[in-house]
């Protein structure tokens, strides 16, 4: 009997500008189902520590909310979701929930307007993290093009890293009770007034979380000391701009999806592809084969790539295309779907 290897990447949840879709790879064929939450932006999909699926939705009209499901089909909105206090002195509003992150039994959520919330009951109820949400001077924070957003969270034990656009990286050593800034060595996005850094995404080494890689507005960087000092690592990249970055934690392979430039957010020469590094970012090369050679002018957003540590990577584009590999990036397949603008990709 032929051995069938079941990969996490074989079952994907895709959050788009217009609903969520499920892609399943069974019997050698991909199938698509959906949309879930028709008409809603699905900005984050995740799995809580107990296996409960989490979805963050919002719309151009109605407010953002967290939904839970045991089967990825039937969803229930939580009643005590992430929310700023009505009397918060800055008049902060929660516009969108952009990421979930599991830290032990706790789930964090990063939101726009930039803030951090946590749940200790698998996403059922949520509380704010004052050290970020009430950061002194945050009234001077400025949004990136995608909003003033906490969009990336890393953790290990009591340590926590939060990426906020266009502000920078914040690190905590005490479970989020207090934070310090961690952007030294990264070129600021803006040096007018107080410097601001536009971190786009972060990924850490699961076994040594002091090693973090960063796709920033101003290039690709890494740190080996938890963010005290960053160095630029772009050797071999066709462009340093981009949003998504991921890492296979078994092989150490890094993946990024370069975009021409801040002011021209399309793949270089209409050639969309993922670049990978197999030496911790010292050098980069285009990852394998299977990419469209030309005529593909859509990039990938920060949450639109997932790496499953089994050799699987999936990346969705702003044009609704999905590319997958099951051999750590040697061979890529464009799936037979054309979805709305893809905001997030998750294994389910």
């Amino acid at each position: 009997m032929e051995q069938v290897n079941h990969l996490a990447i074989d079952h994907l949840g895709i959050g788009t500008e217009k609903g969520a879709y499920r892609l399943d790879h069974t019997g050698g064929q991909w199938s698509v189902s959906g949309p879930l939450f028709p008409g809603w932006k699905v900005s984050a999909l995740s799995t809580a520590p107990d296996g409960t699926y989490l979805a963050a939705i919002g719309s151009n009209w109605f407010g953002a909310s967290v939904h839970r499901s045991n089967d990825f089909e039937n969803w229930t909105q939580v009643e005590i979701g992430p929310k700023y206090d009505g009397d918060n002195p800055l008049g902060l509003k929660l516009n969108q929930i952009w990421t979930f992150h599991n830290a032990g039994d706790r789930v964090y959520a990063g939101v726009d307007q930039a803030g951090l919330f946590y749940s200790d009951d698998q996403g059922l109820t949520w509380e704010g993290v004052p050290a970020i949400n009430e950061w002194p001077g945050r009234e001077h924070w400025s949004p990136g093009f995608g909003g003033l957003t906490a969009h990336r969270i890393l953790s290990q034990g009591d340590r926590l890293w939060v990426g906020i656009s266009a502000v920078g990286v914040f690190r905590s050593e005490d479970c989020g009770e207090s934070f310090v800034r961690a952007d030294q060595g990264v070129i600021p996005a803006s040096e007018e007034g107080e410097p601001a850094w536009c971190v786009h995404s972060l990924v850490a080494d699961r076994d040594d979380p002091n090693r973090i890689w960063r796709q920033d507005h101003r290039g690709v960087y890494r740190t080996t000391d938890g963010g005290d000092k960053w160095e630029q690592i772009e050797n071999g990249l066709p462009a340093s701009f981009g949003f998504a970055i991921g890492r296979n934690q078994e092989t150490g392979t890094l993946f990024v999806a370069p975009i021409t430039a801040d002011e021209n957010r399309v793949p270089v020469n209409g050639h969309f592809s993922v670049f990978r590094s197999q030496d911790d970012g010292d050098s980069w090369e285009e990852a394998g084969v299977g990419w469209p050679q030309e005529g593909h002018f859509n990039g990938a957003l920060r949450n639109a790539m997932v790496v499953d540590n089994q050799g699987g990577v999936a990346i969705g584009t702003t044009g609704g295309s999905v590319f997958v590999t099951s051999d750590n990036g040697d061979h890529w397949e464009q799936l037979p779907v054309s979805l709305p603008r893809i905001l997030c990709v998750a294994t389910i």
Binding site: W61, F62, G63, A64, S65, E79, K83, N88, L92, K93
Partner: peptide
């Protein structure tokens, strides 16, 4: 319907801008 509040009203209790 407690889940409705966050969709219709913002944190300060105002109707959302496009509702």
């Amino acid at each position: 319907h407690p889940a409705l509040r966050v969709h219709l009203l913002d944190e300060q209790g105002f109707l959302r801008p496009h509702v």
